[in-house]
Design a protein around this nucleic acid. Structure first.
Lengths: 243, 243
DNA sequence: AGAGACTATGGCACTCAGTACCCTCTGTAA
DNA sequence: TTACAGAGGGTACTGAGTGCCATAGTCTCT
């Protein structure tokens, strides 16, 4: 039943477009009652991505069983699970890609799906990199990098019409990420310079209000380089500010 | 009018929750017609993020005027524009953050906004890194990293209740990204944290660094009267600041 | 001043997604 | 047979978003 609905929906979306297809159209073609549609798909958009829920579960399961000593490799492999789901049905994936490109609502929905993958990856990385210090930060940045790399390779393949093997492009993209992030299993101590520490010496900045005739439009601010920021702001506010 | 509607909407969202507030409730409180709401906000969700459109325009403008020889620095600075928009209204930002956390619809909407920022950054990087080879891939991964780092720092600040200066956390997060990606004018060799690239000029308010060779002593800042303070500070920092 | 144009706003009616509630049908157990 | 459970169907409702038109204020040109 779920399958019947998904297929009827997808056919109609390709024929008339997503927005000009109503749920009534879908259930009419599928020959079922309107209420049944919402029993199987919480929203119209869900019918376009009927397999992501299962894929997400698969990814979670994979990561739970993953080895501990190469978290970046693990999340890269986890991303490949998604890729393989797309590669399993090239023509469907390509058609869906084209559909999704054209319909803002579907793009947004897809974003929320991608976000869930990303959070799953980030959660795994966080647990392996440690919460403290920059662990959470690194986890999120690496997860975002992996997802971006994966999506770049995937889109390349989708735009090409689904010809050939998408794994090569994605492997290449993921290799770039791995090259950059290495294997940060133990090297969580590489610290960045502590504080930006804006400025040092000061010379008095001075501000000149532009036109003298009431509706001056321009403020010219002149200051030495290295002037403390608060000092600059103070001067600017005095000149620009009434608001 | 837009302001009135946004305020009425936000009040009601805080009082009754987003989903239990209808557009009719909003326009009733604002004392305007229902049709007017949709003239100013294409959807109910937009009323929660009334300033992102303008901020996105600022970012685009900033990047268009950005220097060419430090694209990673440029997109990092561009991300700080968003941060300053949040920092300009701490209590509003924190309340909105809490609201957004609780409402799936708003989370999804926010994702689509973040995605537009990310694509703006990626577009800039792509144009500077070159389309060919891995240019596009690098652009997207770096953009995703910058966004993730920015969001990590921002969320830290939001979760803390908006106390203190969010810039420190975000600067730290962005420093991590910069440390990893360096100045990818060339290959992927992991360079040391890049030198602090002083940016020069930009559009609406524009700052001009005095010296030709890096040790210029004077900065001239010109801005229209009424320019938002955070924008001014951002320009000054770009010209005067360390980091 | 007055005609015409343009803009901002309000009001009405409509489509359609999504939900609540209740119905029927069918198969199974007692 | 009744009792029950679970899958599906039907109806009516809420509420977001859109299209169309009417009205009021403003600006311009004559």
């Amino acid at each position: 039943m779920r399958e019947v609905l998904a297929q009827a929906a997808f056919q109609l979306f390709l024929e008339r477009g997503f927005e000009r297809t109503t749920v009534d159209d879908i259930v009419a073609r599928a020959g079922v009652g309107r209420r049944s549609f919402f029993r199987y798909f919480p929203s119209k958009e869900d019918a376009v991505f009927p397999d992501h829920e299962r894929c997400l579960a698969e990814m979670t399961e994979f990561l739970a069983a993953a080895d501990d000593d190469d978290p970046v490799g693990a999340v890269s492999d986890a991303a490949r699970i998604v890729l393989r789901m797309y590669a399993a049905n090239p023509e469907f994936s390509v058609q869906r890609y084209r559909l999704t490109r054209e319909v803002p609502g579907l793009r947004t929905y897809e974003l929320s799906v991608v976000r869930r993958y990303e959070q799953t990856l980030a959660g795994h990385l966080r647990s392996r990199l440690g919460e403290g210090g920059d662990g959470a930060l690194r986890a999120e940045v690496i997860a975002a990098s992996v997802v971006a790399a994966h999506n770049n390779g995937l889109r390349l393949w989708l735009r090409s019409g689904g010809e050939g093997d998408p794994e090569v492009a994605v492997d290449h993209a993921l290799a770039l990420v791995r090259e950059v992030w290495g294997r940060p299993a133990a090297s969580a101590a590489s610290t960045a310079p502590a504080a930006p520490a804006v400025s040092e010496a000061s010379a008095v900045p001075f501000a000149v209000s532009g036109g003298g005739d009431g509706d001056g439009e321009v403020v010219v601010m002149v200051a030495r380089k290295g002037t403390p920021m608060w000092r600059v702001v103070q001067q600017i506010e005095a000149a620009v500010g009434e608001n």
